[in-house]
């Protein structure tokens, strides 16, 4: 250090090369921002273009006033709105259930130590990684041939607010909950492992029941992890497609989810309507985008299994 102070030219040179390096760094970072945002940006500007403007303007530039329209957004909203409702109906309950079950399982497998839990735990971890293809045939068989919720619950459909397609929603809630449990369990376990073991032990010696410890100590300490799990699971379930395709099946089903409807949006006899598709993509992504922008940190923690 003292060397450099004595030789200003050298210091200047270092500074220059430092500045150059920083400039290169920021240019790279900015380039990467462009790369990651480009598909989204071009989607956004395209969604507000008339078909005319789509042909006449560059894909990443916004349209002029004459080429501007919100019609596609309005149309996409009409097409997707009941799918949004359906997606909310199954995403929120299954997110909550996943989190509760995950927290319980993690508690039972972490803070209480017993032999054989490793084996059970291994089954939970492996459950995260199962390709859904390996289960969808039995799953569709189970729901459509064995359970037939819509018929079994027929007495419910006469009630106000309940309709037959809610049977499908219920099936999706159970399905998403079941497949969400493993990841939630592992997320909670990661936190519970860092909790103070001695505290639990002390409470037990104090005669507190496991349930009491869970409620009074573990749950309050898990609040931040619940936030992570909610955010992560909400996005996962909202974005999911394969279960929608195989359990709901049809885009026109009253229970169709938003991803399912989006997959069939914008194809008509008159041609593929890209502005409409883009508008639809944004509407379908809106809830997850909002959640993501507000809670990016929790999301990042969630993905880092």
């Amino acid at each position: 250090m003292s060397h450099e102070e004595e030789r200003p030219e050298a210091r200047n040179a270092t500074r220059r090369s430092d500045a150059l390096r920083r400039a290169a760094l920021y240019a790279t970072l900015a380039g990467l921002v462009a790369f990651y945002l480009a598909p989204i940006e071009t989607g956004l500007v395209t969604s507000i273009k008339t078909s005319e403007a789509v042909r006449n303007t560059l894909p990443f530039l916004p349209p002029g006033l004459s080429g501007f329209t919100l019609d596609k957004w309005a149309f996409a909203f009409d097409a997707l709105s009941h799918g949004m409702v359906n997606s909310v109906l199954f995403t929120i309950p299954s997110t909550l259930l996943c989190a509760v079950f995950g927290s319980m399982a993690a508690y039972g497998l972490t803070l209480v130590d017993w032999r054989g839990q490793i084996a059970v735990l291994a089954l939970f971890v492996a459950g995260i990684f199962i390709p859904y293809q390996a289960v969808i045939i039995p799953l569709s068989e189970f729901w459509s041939i064995w359970v037939e919720l819509d018929e079994r619950l027929a007495f419910l459909w006469a009630l106000p607010l309940l309709e037959e397609h809610h049977a499908t929603i219920l099936e999706l809630i159970v399905t998403h909950t079941a497949y969400g449990i493993p990841i939630c369990t592992i997320l909670f376990r990661a936190q519970y492992q860092t909790m103070s073991w001695e505290m639990i032990e002390a409470a037990r010696l104090d005669g507190a029941s496991l349930w009491r410890i869970y409620r009074r100590i573990v749950l309050p300490l898990s609040v931040p992890m619940f936030a992570v799990v909610f955010i992560f699971q909400f996005t996962q379930i909202w974005n999911e497609f394969l279960f929608s395709l195989t359990i709901i099946r049809s885009v026109s089903d009253p229970a169709a989810s938003v991803t399912l409807i989006l997959s069939g949006l914008g194809t008509a006899l008159e041609g593929v309507d890209f502005p409409l598709r883009m508008a639809g993509a944004f509407i379908a992504a809106l809830p997850t985008l909002i959640v993501y922008v507000l809670f990016a940190d929790q999301f990042a923690e969630g993905v880092r299994v």
């Binding site: 990467l32 921002v33 990651y36 945002l37 598909p39 989204i40 996005t235 909202w238 974005n239 999911e240 497609f241 991803t259 989006l262 997959s263 993509a281 379908a284 992504a285 997850t288 985008l289 959640v291 993501y292 990016a296 999301f299 990042a300 993905v303």
Partner: peptide, 11 residues
């Protein structure tokens, strides 16, 4: 950089 991961494959 992480944003795309919050989006559905369909989107």
């Amino acid at each position: 950089y992480l944003l795309p991961m919050s989006l559905s494959f369909i989107v």
